[in-house]
Design a protein around this nucleic acid. Sequence first.
RNA 1: GGAGAAGUGGCAGAGUGGUCGAAUGCACUGGUCUUGAAAACCAGCGAGGGUCACACCUCCAGGGGUUCGAAUCCCUUCUUCUCCGCCA
Length: 422
Amino acid sequence: MLQIAEIRENKDVFAKALQKRNIDALPLLENAIKVDEQRRSIQGQLDETLAKSNKLSKEIGELYKSGKAAEANELKKQTADLKESSKQLGDQLNEAVVKLQTLLYEIPNIPQESVPAGNTDEDNEVVSQHGEIPVLHEGAKPHWELVKDYDIIDFELGNKITGAGFPVYKNKGARLQRALINYFLDKNTEAGYDEMQVPHLVNEASGYGTGQLPDKEGQMYHVGVDDLYLIPTGEVPITNIYRDTILEAKDFPITMTGYTPCFRREAGSYGSDVRGLNRLHQFDKVEILRIEHPDKSDGALDAMVVHVKGILEELELPYRILRLCGGDLGFTSTLTYDFEVYSTAQEKWLEVSSVSNFKTFQANRLKLRYRAEKGTELAHTLNGSALALPRILASILENYQTTDGIKIPKVLIPYCGFDTID
RNA sequence: GGAGAAGUGGCAGAGUGGUCGAAUGCACUGGUCUUGAAAACCAGCGAGGGUCACACCUCCAGGGGUUCGAAUCCCUUCUUCUCCGCCA
């Protein structure tokens, strides 16, 4: 959520930057400013009323103490009006605050200068491409056939137990899955990220903190009886560790990693995009997060990109890096790099990581600040996947297939304990 | 799940209807002293709104209520602790 004080000062700049998202934000911003003015005016009146009644109350107290009960009772009569109007003003203030809040929730984050203009994922800018796209043997198959042939992932079983999008990983498939999680966590902790193991269900406040609520409510599974949400990403619980926190400047940077399953309803998805492992209701992901001083967040994003590159290089998968265009940029992000791995058998690029700088957008909701020279300032938050499992798994299976079985990438062999799936 | 107790500033811990945004100690910051450090002493030190800056307003787990006035009384939710029960 943007800060109203910032909006007040940078209305036109913000509106211009938001054009990259193909929205005309000026009316939204102006409306927010208007409501904020109302809010401040009401607040002023309320404060004045409260100041008066505070003063009266003090006088009444002193009169009682000095035994002048009659005079005190006289003053009491004056408080009734004040009480009534402060109640009314309080209600009005509340209304204005909620209204402002609602408006602010609707305004997405300001894209950075470098974000390219564009509408859809076709307009994303390819920053770089790496690795060799392998030439597969005759009759190479997409992963959903391979997993059947080798009996390592069973979608039908998942259907039986739960429903579509909840696969069962079997034997070497399960082992490879575990290997990937451990490998990713090791890479991240070697790079200095502190490993966290967090709850997989979160409360409403956490959902608001990272921005899943109120707008993406439909994407999360909700446990009604206990009013808890299954996490759609580890970002939610891990970032919320620092909700309502004031850091010291020396605490920066805070770097964390964690493995969690992720649960997404994916309402409205269909077609070949959801085939096999391409889109699931439950999947595994290892996440990296950083909390940074505002001066350092741009550099931190670059460092995260380098880190994810390193992992993909080790896995020897062909990949490319995209800078998301304004139309494809997530609501809460100022700048996002997507990593896509090439699936040779499907002949398409699969997104395996998304690395973003949210600047103060999440921190404002989280009330995540640090002590600055004077007062407190909002910190910057960043996160990225390092990495999401299913599509990495899919591309390993597809790109490493041979007529003698599926080879395991060298770095994973020690984690798996085997070098071929056959 | 049942019974009881409790939730106050970074931490510890006073405060049970007015002068309390809150004693005191620790921690922290600045200063004096010292060759330097420690100790001692002096000063400062929560957050949010508001203002050019003050003033002023709000916040003592969350929400609601009583009262001229609430950290303090009442209701409710949450959390923690103790005992009992159940249990991976």
